[in-house]
Nucleic acid binder design. Structure first.
Lengths: 160, 160
DNA sequence: ATGAAACCTTTTAAGGTCAAACTATTTTAT
DNA sequence: ATAAAATAGTTTGACCTTAAAAGGTTTCAT
């Protein structure tokens, strides 16, 4: 997709990098979650189960913080996981504001099947890049991501 | 976010690359569209206006193809743009199945203000990477994206 | 101890997203 | 010419997503 935009070199470069980054990431995720689903799980449901699978029971806010999602969103995603008996909510008695979310035996069993498949899919999909290229990509994205998370770098308050 | 997963080097690398790629992209887009909005436009609305701004009037299917979105989705996004008088639908008389979407004068004027700001935001946000790094990132993502779009590379049919 | 502030989750309203089923139109094959 | 197939857009149902307001619960100052 050529840019159809005339600007300075820096502008054209930034625009092209942006387009390639966002389109490729979207294609990647569409390929990984065809029809938005992965073994019957949405990306958010899978992410939630994965966090619990590797870190153990957490309260909703903690899960949301890991996944960069809003509290209201977590309520819905966990509702849907609970309907399918993959997780269980348990009000925390030490702090009754919190709700600890546990993987059920069913959820645990599902992840034991699905997670290794997920890893295999990622290895296959990244195999078009050499290990060195994957490392470079990871480093660049880490740098970009950290800059975006730091409160200083908002696009509106461009440096004077 | 360390991986909490023990696997082969390839597996750990793929998983880490995946996490960095998706999280950083998400942070980037959240930063670019705070609260999911950009000058009052959602990302999809902005994308639609941008395509029309640079390519001229197109039918809905063509816009959807450019943005990798489903037909039903385009119906809704264009509905919302039409409500705000940024866009106008016109049934094509040569082929009455098609609906050509035009930018209104209002939409044109909005893009004339917003698009240059968009480019400036991108330049600012990518400024943590050198031009060379941006070029490398673009190349890697292009390679990754092309592999994901080719029908052969579905994650399910992993190479034997 | 009591009121205010902070915190966690839920609810709501607005919008996005897909697949699948449906309508209308055009093309193609007979 | 007409039936069948392909195409363009819409509708529907299920889910995701956010911000903002509202409900309990806890903590902190007084």
């Amino acid at each position: 997709m050529p840019t159809h935009f005339s600007g300075s070199d820096r502008e054209v470069l930034a625009l092209n990098t942006y387009i390639k980054l966002t389109r490729a990431t979207e294609s990647f995720l569409t390929r990984l979650y065809p029809g938005g689903r992965y073994h019957g799980l949405t990306a958010s449901q899978f992410g939630t189960l994965e966090v619990l699978y590797h870190l153990g029971p957490l309260c909703q806010g903690e899960i949301g913080a890991k996944l960069l999602k809003s509290p209201g969103n977590m309520t819905l995603v966990i509702d849907n996981l609970e309907k399918r008996s993959l997780v269980r909510r348990q009000r925390d008695n030490d702090d009754r504001r919190q709700i600890t979310v546990h993987l059920t035996a069913e959820g645990q069993a599902l992840m034991a099947v699905v997670f290794p498949q997920h890893v295999a899919d990622l290895v296959a999909m990244f195999s078009v890049l050499t290990p060195e290229e994957q490392a470079v990509l990871g480093d660049l994205m880490k740098k970009l991501g950290q800059a975006c998370e730091s409160p200083a770098a908002a696009p509106q308050d461009a440096p004077g």
